[in-house]
Computed example of a mutant assay.
Amino acid sequence: MSTSLTGSKQRSWLQRRPLLRDAYFTDLQKGSYFAFIYSIVECVFMICLVVFDIYCLAEAQPGTTNHRYFGISFLFVYSGNAHVRNLLIFCSVISFFLAVYLLVSSIILMNALKKEHEQKFLPWLIAAFLFTVWRIIAIIFRSIANDIYYSYHQAILVIWILLIGTNVFFWLVVYSNYQELADITRLEDMAKLKMGTMSSLNASRSLSHHSINSVKNTQSNSLTPRGSSSTASV
């Protein structure tokens, strides 16, 4: 008994099921709902940011200078390599499609949470994982390609560091909820299988007793002589 307790205490959190016992500020179910809301907000923010970045890069063609005013004065000047600029546009396009993918999977996650159908958590888990990994790669590349001297790029870098950390946390919350529901489903399936096996065994036993009784009745009838119920003649 002490050995099993020691083994469970020494088990790392990566080997636990679920990985997280709760979402620290609430349980896993409610934490998954918060993850859904957070994903929706992040996707909308990402789509708006991508549209703005692509617009800025389209205006800032190498060798040109353009001015715009949207409450704040913008000076569109790009002094870098044209191929790097194209890569920045490519990063924005990929981010747009991943944001749309995450948005759709978030809607699927909402329905899955209502019905507690853990298998439908998988699209969101895959989308959130791909989106987070891509944002790590994209923000590193953008921070190198763009000049961090400007406050806009500094703010974007800080924002995405915070968002990526939050993405990892909520991914662990939803994945832990998925593990918990999967374990419950497995136990329910085992219980149903056991009940089905017991009922089939009981049915086979009752059938066997019925068969034995039928055989006994048949044998007793065959041993009884025909016409044994004769009447006495005078």
Rank of each mutant, 00 (worst) to 15 (best):
F36I: 08
F36Q: 06
Y38C: 06
S39N: 11
S39R: 03
V41D: 05
V41W: 07
V41G: 07
E42Q: 08
E42K: 03
V44A: 11
I47T: 05
C48A: 14
C48Y: 07
C48Q: 10
L49G: 07
V50R: 00
V51K: 09
F52Y: 12
I54V: 15
I54D: 02
Y55A: 02
Y55T: 04
C56P: 00
L57K: 04
L57P: 00
A58M: 13
A58T: 14
A60E: 01
P62R: 15
G63H: 13
G63V: 10
G63F: 12
T64I: 11
T64P: 03
T64M: 13
T65L: 04
H67D: 08
R68W: 15
R68H: 11
Y69S: 10
Y69F: 13
F70M: 03
F70Y: 10
S73P: 06
S73V: 11
F74A: 01
L75P: 02
F76G: 00
Y78R: 00
S79I: 03
S79H: 11
N81A: 15
A82R: 06
V84F: 06
L88F: 03
I89N: 03
I89D: 02
I94Q: 08
I94L: 14
F96S: 05
F96W: 14
A99E: 07
Y101M: 12
L102S: 04
L103I: 12
L103E: 05
L103G: 10
V104M: 09
V104F: 07
S105T: 14
S106Q: 10
I107S: 08
I108A: 12
I108N: 06
M110V: 12
M110D: 12
M110G: 13
N111Y: 10
N111L: 08
N111Q: 12
N111W: 07
L113C: 07
L113T: 02
L113I: 06
K114Y: 08
K115G: 15
E116T: 13
E116W: 05
H117D: 15
H117E: 15
E118S: 09
E118Q: 11
Q119T: 14
Q119L: 15
Q119I: 13
Q119W: 13
K120N: 13
K120Y: 13
K120D: 14
F121E: 06
L122Y: 08
P123S: 10
W124E: 05
L125F: 06
L125K: 09
I126R: 15
A127R: 02
A128R: 03
F129S: 11
F131T: 01
F131H: 02
V133A: 14
W134D: 02
W134R: 01
W134A: 03
R135I: 03
R135F: 09
A138I: 05
A138Q: 11
I140A: 15
F141W: 07
R142F: 00
R142D: 00
S143L: 02
N146M: 04
N146V: 00
D147M: 00
D147Q: 05
Y149W: 01
Y150A: 01
Y152V: 07
Y152C: 05
H153C: 06
Q154T: 02
A155G: 10
I156G: 04
I156Q: 07
L157W: 02
V158D: 10
I159Q: 12
W160I: 02
I161F: 10
L163I: 09
L163N: 05
L163H: 05
G165T: 09
G165V: 11
